[in-house]
Amino acid sequence: MFYVERGKKGKIVAIRREADTAEMELKEAVDDEIIEFLIDEKTNDSLIRLLASTDVGGMRVLEDLINLLVNKNIIMLTELPHDAQVKLRQRQQIRQSLGKETIIVDDII
Score class of each variant (00 low, 15 high):
Phe2Lys: 05
Tyr3Glu: 03
Tyr3Val: 06
Val4Ile: 15
Val4Ala: 06
Glu5Phe: 00
Arg6Gly: 01
Lys9Tyr: 01
Lys11Ser: 09
Ile12Phe: 02
Val13Gly: 00
Ile15His: 03
Ala19Pro: 02
Asp20Met: 08
Glu23Leu: 10
Glu23Asp: 13
Glu23Ala: 15
Leu26Phe: 00
Glu28Thr: 06
Glu28Trp: 02
Ala29Met: 08
Ala29Thr: 03
Val30Ser: 06
Val30Met: 10
Asp32Asn: 09
Glu33Ala: 10
Glu33Lys: 10
Ile34Cys: 11
Phe37Gly: 06
Phe37Trp: 12
Ile39Arg: 11
Lys42Asp: 14
Leu47His: 01
Ile48Lys: 05
Arg49Met: 06
Leu50Trp: 02
Leu50Thr: 08
Leu50Val: 07
Leu50Lys: 03
Leu51Gly: 03
Leu51Asp: 02
Thr54Asp: 02
Asp55Val: 15
Asp55Gly: 06
Val56Tyr: 01
Gly57Lys: 09
Gly58Val: 05
Gly58Ala: 05
Met59Ile: 11
Arg60Met: 08
Arg60Ile: 04
Leu62Cys: 04
Asp64Arg: 11
Leu65Arg: 11
Leu65Ser: 06
Asn67His: 13
Leu68Trp: 00
Leu68Ile: 03
Leu69His: 02
Leu69Asn: 03
Lys72Arg: 14
Lys72Gln: 13
Ile74Gln: 11
Ile75Asn: 04
Leu77Met: 14
Thr78Asp: 14
Glu79Gly: 12
Leu80Gln: 11
Leu80Val: 12
Pro81Cys: 13
Pro81Glu: 15
Gln85Asp: 05
Gln85Ile: 12
Val86Glu: 12
Gln90Val: 13
Gln92Cys: 06
Gln93Ala: 15
Gln93Met: 13
Gln93Asp: 15
Ile94Ser: 06
Ile94Phe: 13
Arg95Val: 15
Gln96Lys: 15
Gly99Ser: 12
Gly99Val: 14
Gly99Ile: 14
Glu101His: 01
Ile103Ser: 09
Ile104Gly: 10
Asp106Lys: 13
Asp106Leu: 08
Ile108Lys: 06
Ile109Cys: 04
